[in-house]
Lab assay of single mutants.
Amino acid sequence: TTKIQIRLADGSRLIQRFNSTHRILDVRNFIVQSRPEFAALDFILVTSFPNKELTDESLTLLEADILNTVLLQQ
């Protein structure tokens, strides 16, 4: 498993454990389930350093190389 910290656009944080085989789409779905107010918003996930937009949501967390990292919601 891996721990992902997500810094949300409103300044708050979410921390969740995922399997390395989960997909970026699963992280997006977790955000929307945790904070339904973001469901209607068009947002992207970005790595904190170096900044990289995670546009291919079909990638696993392992394939995207974002295990144990911080993601930013923009």
Rank of each mutant, 00 (worst) to 15 (best):
T1D: 13
T1G: 10
T1N: 07
T1W: 07
T1I: 08
T2P: 00
T2R: 08
K3P: 02
K3F: 14
K3C: 06
K3T: 14
I4R: 09
Q5P: 05
Q5A: 13
R7N: 14
R7C: 08
R7T: 03
L8K: 04
L8S: 01
L8P: 12
A9Q: 11
A9Y: 10
D10Y: 08
D10S: 02
D10W: 04
D10G: 05
G11M: 11
G11F: 11
G11C: 02
G11N: 06
G11S: 10
G11R: 01
S12N: 04
S12L: 06
R13P: 03
R13I: 15
R13W: 14
R13C: 10
R13N: 06
R13L: 13
R13V: 14
L14H: 11
L14A: 00
L14T: 12
L14K: 03
I15D: 06
I15M: 12
I15A: 09
I15S: 11
Q16M: 04
Q16K: 14
Q16E: 04
R17Y: 08
R17C: 11
R17V: 13
F18K: 06
F18Q: 01
F18P: 02
F18S: 00
F18V: 06
S20Q: 11
S20P: 14
S20W: 14
S20T: 15
S20V: 15
T21F: 01
T21W: 07
T21D: 12
H22C: 15
H22D: 15
H22R: 08
H22G: 03
R23V: 02
R23C: 06
R23S: 05
R23L: 00
I24T: 02
I24V: 08
I24W: 02
L25T: 14
L25G: 10
D26H: 03
V27C: 10
V27L: 06
V27D: 07
V27I: 14
V27S: 04
R28F: 04
R28P: 00
N29Y: 09
N29D: 10
N29S: 13
N29P: 08
F30W: 07
I31W: 02
I31V: 04
I31G: 06
V32Q: 00
V32S: 11
V32I: 10
Q33M: 08
Q33V: 02
Q33Y: 06
Q33L: 01
S34L: 09
S34N: 12
S34A: 13
R35E: 01
R35L: 06
R35M: 00
R35P: 04
P36W: 01
P36T: 02
E37I: 05
E37F: 05
E37L: 07
F38Y: 14
F38Q: 10
F38P: 02
F38I: 01
F38W: 07
A39C: 06
A39Q: 14
A39W: 02
A39E: 12
A40P: 08
A40I: 00
A40H: 14
A40G: 13
A40S: 14
A40D: 15
L41C: 13
D42H: 04
D42T: 02
D42E: 05
D42V: 10
D42S: 08
D42A: 03
F43K: 11
I44P: 01
I44R: 12
I44Y: 12
L45S: 02
L45P: 06
L45M: 05
L45A: 03
V46K: 12
V46L: 12
T47I: 14
T47F: 00
T47A: 10
T47W: 10
S48W: 10
S48T: 13
S48L: 13
F49R: 11
F49M: 03
F49L: 09
F49Q: 14
P50R: 08
P50Y: 05
P50C: 01
P50V: 01
P50L: 09
P50M: 06
N51G: 10
N51Y: 15
N51A: 14
N51F: 14
K52P: 03
K52S: 02
K52V: 11
E53P: 12
E53M: 12
E53R: 12
E53N: 05
E53W: 07
E53A: 12
L54A: 03
L54P: 07
T55E: 07
T55I: 11
T55P: 09
T55V: 10
D56S: 02
D56E: 01
D56M: 05
D56C: 03
E57C: 11
E57M: 06
E57P: 00
E57F: 00
E57Q: 03
S58L: 03
S58T: 12
S58P: 01
S58G: 08
L59F: 08
L61V: 03
L62I: 11
L62V: 12
L62P: 06
E63A: 11
E63F: 03
E63L: 02
E63V: 02
E63R: 05
A64E: 01
A64R: 00
A64W: 07
A64L: 09
D65W: 04
D65G: 15
D65K: 08
D65V: 03
D65Y: 04
I66P: 00
I66M: 07
I66A: 10
L67C: 15
L67I: 11
L67V: 11
N68G: 15
N68T: 04
N68F: 01
N68M: 04
N68R: 01
N68A: 02
T69A: 10
T69S: 13
T69N: 08
V70I: 13
V70P: 15
V70D: 09
V70T: 14
V70L: 08
L71A: 04
L71Q: 13
L71G: 05
L72Y: 15
L72M: 09
L72G: 01
L72F: 12
L72V: 14
Q73C: 10
Q73I: 14
Q73P: 00
Q73L: 08
Q74M: 08
Q74Y: 08
Q74G: 06
Q74P: 04
Q74R: 15
